[in-house]
């Protein structure tokens, strides 16, 4: 009996690690493959294209992309758009999330519902009107227009995130400070904000990734080469040089690097932050 249960336990352990392994493999393999093709010399691509690792490596693709294309420019544009959007959204959403978490007021349910319903708006429906409005105030074909739109689209979800982070901080902490003579804004600055920093970090990373990924708006609103974001640049690149796999993947890997670094640092806070108040309330 004892032997059997030990066997059983060993089996369930093996099953557990096998499942974990399968998830890791599934998650990593496509990224691994992109990196692999990006360092494969062009002459080996078709003979060894489907091997797990090529017999020779090269950095040519990277240097070609960096020196001969506009990718550094696209990269910078995407960085400007994503950083500005994530900071603006997090600031606005922190305020809104704080209001929804700490106050009881008439119209609160309506506001929450409105925020939730904005998530159902098909992007494609607002693109033509936005295109017209933005055109009339000169925001097409520049990065400000993109920042404005991305901000509006990310506010709702970011507000829910921030609300749940604020919900996770006991109200008593602020109340105690306010009894001790702090104003609400001092209590907010000295006590609540430091405790929400991980939550803000998570929100920033979430919005950053969303802005970094966006394609359709950028495709519609941006025409000139100097204003293109990475997603648009990569897609046009593919249209032009459809056969240069190595360079395409090198560019892709470079597009991946900032988000991956960002996300690797902040994904921990995403879980701990959400645990605190959770999407449960």
């Amino acid at each position: 009996m004892v032997g059997q249960s030990r066997v059983q336990r060993a089996l369930s352990k093996i099953g557990f690690y096998a499942a974990i392994g399968a998830y890791v493999l599934f998650a990593i393999f496509p990224i691994y493959w992109t990196v692999k093709i990006s360092v494969t010399p062009t002459r080996l691509l078709y003979t060894e294209g489907i091997k797990l690792w090529p017999s020779a490596m090269t950095m040519e693709n990277y240097s070609a992309v960096l020196s001969a294309t506009d990718f550094p420019r696209y990269f910078l544009n995407s960085l400007i758009v994503s950083i500005s959007t994530s900071l603006i959204v997090t600031a606005i959403a922190s305020l809104a999330g704080y209001a929804l978490s700490r106050f009881q007021f008439r119209g609160k349910a309506v506001v929450s519902l409105l925020l939730l319903l904005t998530q159902t708006f098909p992007l494609v429906m607002v693109i033509p009107p936005i295109f017209r409005i933005m055109g009339s105030i000169g925001l097409t074909d520049n990065l400000y227009g993109l920042i404005v739109i991305y901000t509006a689209f990310n506010i709702a979800f970011a507000t829910f995130l921030m609300q749940s982070f604020f919900d996770g901080i006991p109200k008593e902490l602020e109340e105690a400070a306010m009894i001790d003579g702090c104003t609400r804004s001092t209590a907010l600055r000295r006590i609540v904000l430091p405790l929400t920093l991980p939550g803000m970090g998570a929100t920033i990373s979430f919005v950053f990734t969303a802005a970094w990924s966006e394609l359709l708006f950028a495709l519609m609103l941006i025409n000139s080469e100097s204003q293109k974001t990475f997603s648009v640049g990569l897609l046009t690149f593919i249209g032009k040089f459809a056969v240069d796999w190595g360079q395409m993947m090198a560019a892709s890997v470079m597009a991946l690097i900032p988000v991956c670094i960002f996300f690797a640092f902040l994904q921990r806070y995403l879980v701990t932050g959400l645990t605190a108040g959770a999407v449960k309330g």
Binding site: A27, T209, L256, F263
Partner: peptide, 8 residues
């Protein structure tokens, strides 16, 4: 990590 990979 896949969540961080841009959709395009």
């Amino acid at each position: 990590l896949p969540w961080a990979v841009p959709t395009f």
